[in-house]
Design a binder for these strands. Structure first.
Lengths: 225, 225
DNA sequence: GAGAGTTATTACAATTTGATTAGAGTGAGT
DNA sequence: ACTCACTCTAATCAAATTGTAATAACTCTC
């Protein structure tokens, strides 16, 4: 899941960001409405979280913008506690849900997941991904190969999960950079190659090999050699 | 006590929310039936308060849903004044109690407390929590490791208990901050790390280690290394 | 099979994250 | 008022992760 947080309170923004990341949720942040709007224009988010009071472009206006241009993307508004007028305004501007500060972090996570489920922009990940004797638990982020538990770093796991979702298909480096690294412009980096190498060491050191190179194109996870 | 309010009238919802909070009752709110349902799915409430007329999923249907899936959770329905048909429908859909708008706030609190008393929903902690040679008596707050009695401070104990209840699962720092410390928006603290360190000294200085760090995510109590 | 273009591997620097420690502040009990 | 245990902050140290860059190995085309 991919979430955008637009919130000018730096502390709160970081808190939400850290919390969601350790929940395994992809997070992009903006500290004002204008930057928020351009991010919404550029990328595909599953949910957008907006603070009401922001310099530049406030939450209501940004919410209206989202609803006009991407009506399918659900919006959660954050507002100061008990400002009733805000609440009404929020619903009028088309928000899908609401959270008064201060809120329990769990509350936010639940509502994010609920909204993402209600607007399934992409099929939800199955609990378990498998390929021969390679197995991945997408909730706990645990991985097994040939019966052995393997510990992966966050990046390694994200790479593996992405390849596994697209198993049997060739995935290009650019595709991986965009979707696993969130790099959206052209750099001449070889991170992908390096991490494929890391992954091979950890999960592909036994037969049969699952992670194949497709020369000149990219990589592919597949059972047959 | 933990109560869920599902009510689309923003003003009324807010009024109930504030009122219950000042009674020291934990409140979660939803402004439509669909969000309400997903909150019920994911959290444990002691009582659910439902409005009858709502967009998306109305009170009766949501009530039926609750009674089918969590028959132990009591439900109070809120309905427009004196509509007898509604009353009948409400009881048919399994509601435990009833309130016609407008109602006295005291009345709601009284009924909530009565229902919560009648249905002590939350499963009480077991008397004894264990993991290999680590044992905790949740009544006396006594702790043993490898046969030796260990004395913990209040905070250390709370942390250990929480981790033990969630044994085998990774628990994030934000989760611990919220549920063990009751701290909600503080990014710049490392109390959790410090107390994990205290705990390790006291209960994890022998093999096998039980308290594991999951890099970038949090901590976990688990028997296997 | 030579050469150009790709990919694999490795070492290392930068960054991020976690562990550890000392000590300031607080409050209960004496 | 004094002590003591407890809680938390802040600083420092240690470890893990993430990229970059350089070089080696490989693949394809001619």
């Amino acid at each position: 899941m991919n979430v955008l947080i637009v919130e000018d309170d730096v502390e709160l923004n970081q808190f939400i960001q850290k919390g969601l990341q350790s929940e395994g949720i992809g997070v992009s942040v903006a500290y004002d409405g204008i930057i928020g709007r351009s991010l919404i224009n550029e990328r595909q988010f599953d949910v957008v979280v907006l603070d009401v009071n922001m310099p530049g472009l406030n939450g209501y206006d940004l919410c209206r913008f989202v609803k006009q241009n991407w009506p399918a993307i659900p919006v959660i508004m954050l507002t100061a506690l008990g400002s009733l007028d805000n609440k009404v305004l929020g619903f009028e501007s088309g928000a899908d849900d609401y959270l008064s500060k201060p809120f329990a972090f769990k509350e936010l996570v639940f509502r994010l997941k609920a909204l993402a489920r209600r607007h399934p922009s992409r099929a939800p990940l199955p609990k378990r991904l498998e390929l021969l004797d390679l197995a991945v638990d997408t909730e706990s982020h645990q991985v097994w190969r040939a019966g052995e538990r393997v510990t992966l770093t966050a990046r390694e796991y994200a790479l593996l999960e992405y390849l596994l979702v697209k198993q049997g298909k060739v995935v290009s480096r650019v595709d991986l950079l965009e979707n696993v690294w969130d790099v959206h412009f052209n750099t001449n980096t070889n991170v992908v190659d390096v991490y494929i190498n890391y992954l091979r060491r950890k999960i592909d050191h036994v037969e049969p090999k699952l992670l194949h190179t497709v020369f000149g194109v990219g990589y592919m996870l597949r059972a047959e050699p």
